[in-house]
Design a protein around this nucleic acid. Structure first.
Lengths: 207, 207
DNA sequence: GTCTATAAACGGATAGAC
DNA sequence: GTCTATCCGTTTATAGAC
């Protein structure tokens, strides 16, 4: 016999699958065409449903945008926290920053549609959507601030560079890799090694 | 560079002024709202004319886009070439790259609406517009390639980092500064000094 | 849950007056 | 050169059938 509970749970799983597909295709289209230029018909088409059906899963286009943006940050933040927290307790600040860089690049490049969409369109979205998304961004930025503050206190960061400039420059540089990184031109591990070297020690040989 | 929308012989100063105002406001709006989300009515409003009047100066919205994109690259490329070419003939590769960084940052930050618009929307514009703009981009990338090739031949660049990775990482990092640089938090010269230091020598103290 | 049909508003582009 | 008026396709969102 089929209970109501069981029916509901089955339906929910099917719901969830379609919902996730909508978010995935929306992220891909936002990334490549921008938010305003992406129509719900295109999203629906890519997800294998009709435009009207989207409104069973979402209240509005802007709600889809909000979830895409949040997922972009969350994918990166989760990867970073996981790696930093699995370090031994006596890890140096340099080791923590290295782990954070690896995690950031991993999350960034393994969820490219969400992360690139976030980076590309954040500066262009309606103010209401921006305000709703701001907290998630702020929390991740705070995490890096704490990491770099620690490095500063331990005297591992250069003193002739402002901490804020360093953080913004490095995070900006890391983020932009999603726009040009090509996995076919070398392994991910090699890539991380090169990026980490540049961040820590720069591009030129010592004079 | 400008595609003629009428006979050049009847062009007046008033024409040119209005035309430039349209481009300036379009760049500002493309930067902050994206290409698709920006309406010609908004551009016209900001430029102090009516929407229909735009078509006296431009053939289409996409033509405006093309000129905005080109101006963004040209502003940066001009500043870089000027600085590199005014160096003494026996300048080291390091000196040339430092001059290029200063020029790049200067052009980028002093024409922020054009450069930021370019960076933000290039990945999202119609393929036709992208193709038309590609050559200008390619030429500027080639300029940097030559500069870094020279540094490599002279043994000034690190050998453990790929030249392509270094160029893409550094240019990406420089470009993104237009998204967060705040002239009220320090002089431009100080800013350039810090950025140049990071690029050349990294963020951490030598072990 | 997904469909079809449609309402309501908007945007690029054009025509023609001044 | 700029304006007003308008055409025509497109878009988000809703209503109601199945």
């Amino acid at each position: 016999m089929t209970t109501k509970t069981r029916e509901a749970s089955v339906r929910t799983e099917a719901d969830t699958a379609t919902r996730e597909r909508i978010l995935l295709e929306a992220a891909r289209l936002f990334r490549h065409h921008g938010y305003a230029a992406t129509t719900l018909r295109e999203v629906a088409d890519a997800a294998g449903i009709k435009a009207g059906s989207i409104y069973y899963h979402f209240e509005s286009k802007e709600q889809i945008l909000g979830e895409v943006l949040d997922k972009g940050i969350q994918a990166v933040a989760d990867a970073v926290r996981q790696r930093v927290e699995s370090l031994p307790k006596d890890a140096t600040a340099r080791m923590k920053v290295a782990a954070a860089i690896e995690g950031h690049l991993w999350g960034l490049l393994h969820h490219g549609d969400f992360t690139s969409a976030n980076i590309r369109i954040y500066g262009q979205i309606p103010p209401a959507a921006k305000n709703r998304h701001r907290k998630v961004r702020r929390e991740y930025a705070d995490y890096w601030d704490a990491l770099l503050d620690e490095a500063t206190r331990r005297g591992e960061l250069r003193r002739d560079i402002g901490a804020t400039v360093a953080r913004l420059f490095v995070i900006g540089a890391l983020n932009w890799t999603v726009e040009w990184y090509n996995p076919q031109k070398g392994s991910f591990d090699d890539f991380v090694k090169q990026i980490t070297t540049i961040v820590f020690d720069g591009t030129f040989v010592r004079e």
